[in-house]
Design a protein around this nucleic acid. Sequence first.
DNA 1: ATTGCTTATATATATAGACATAATGAGCTT
DNA 2: AAGCTCATTATGTCTATATATATAAGCAAT
Lengths: 234, 234
Amino acid sequence: MAAPRANMSYRDIKQVVLDRIHNKIWAPDSLLPSETDLAEEFSSTRTTVNRALRELAEEGYLERKRKAGTRVLNSPVRKAQFAIPLVRDEISETGAEYRYALVERAVMPAPGWLSARMNIPQGREVLHLRCMHYADNTPFQYEVRWIVPDSIPEVLEADFSRSGPNDWLVQKVPFTNLELSFLATKADQSVAEFLDTQAGDPIFTAERITWLRGEPVTLAKLFFAPGYRMTTHL
Amino acid sequence: MAAPRANMSYRDIKQVVLDRIHNKIWAPDSLLPSETDLAEEFSSTRTTVNRALRELAEEGYLERKRKAGTRVLNSPVRKAQFAIPLVRDEISETGAEYRYALVERAVMPAPGWLSARMNIPQGREVLHLRCMHYADNTPFQYEVRWIVPDSIPEVLEADFSRSGPNDWLVQKVPFTNLELSFLATKADQSVAEFLDTQAGDPIFTAERITWLRGEPVTLAKLFFAPGYRMTTHL
DNA sequence: ATTGCTTATATATATAGACATAATGAGCTT
DNA sequence: AAGCTCATTATGTCTATATATATAAGCAAT
């Protein structure tokens, strides 16, 4: 058992606390000693203990409430973190060569489902793009995107034939809010052709909507080639 | 533009820094002033500035290196966080009633793909479970699980007819490592029947493997009912 | 050019003390 | 019994200061 020595860093304290949780010295649902007491035990200060406990709470092991104290969570709601990189980066990091192609560009009135989904007026003109992302010339991702030009009129002039809308948007429009969903969809004829697979195949799909200060900016549907897995470790 | 006032909290400072990044006052790849200078500008202390910058770095906006300084990341690798709750909690939080059913329990030698995947010896005996999770009696998730009893022999005595293996494992075996993947699979006949859908339908699937101090503990394949979305906001 | 030392500097962390804030629970009132 | 008030207390945060550590950059020796 880790015996508290002097000069423990906040990392050391985190580790000791974690060990005690694992070894049920502090059982689930039980209350930890107060920061003050712990600081004394570890011959440290409240500030340092505070940081250790705060981080453990962020990581989902503890629940902290003023006055109520610090409690061990019975089923640690561990949080999986997924980095959401640009496709380009995701591909080139594997060592493969990234290639982009614009499939279609059109300005059109927003279809009903879109204006409902993004909360924009019926029939507002929007920019619609479809594009492909390849890794070593193998289809990697098929992107269907809608951009509301209201808050960014320049987007209508932008050239998307050489680089994707994501690259452009990241440079130009920092979003303030984002909704990201993952789901499984069934490949329709068009998606299947682009991703070089059979219609009806299961497709891992991401949908992201971003806002800038409350104004909807863009909705993207990203269809990943069969076999794609989104993986994380912790 | 947010003018620095006195008595700014670390939250305020975070917000000002974020605003300046958004407004390109501090452009991507550029170097921020040092903590000391910022502390002076905000008539705050280095400790407080440090916390603000540290958190922004954790959130993926900044990159910090000793001596080198703090730099604005050009394409913020924003990290999506997904809480991975127990199914039971996920269901009851929607207000629906949770119901569990054990479908099959068997002890058998590990099939080849499993021993390869989890790095356990060929033919080692493992516990195999299949179960269903319902929300208001509607199929919600079909779970296929494999447990290596080596490090937890009690698991062979456990009663899984009333509550699921996840509940049991969370109580008994705190994991130290976890690999979590999301993918889209095609419903085979069995999965389709359990989830009350058609064979061939796309199924959002999660696969998780956990280890305890390097020893593989369990692998679970979680098949979600059609229509399931894993969503996060940030 | 390459390697190895030195130094300056920016971040990382620790300490100590103060005030702020929320929530609990005891005691009082109705 | 139910509701209200208020002191208590644990965490939340800020200030001020000090030491630790990594490393970029310059300089020297190979």
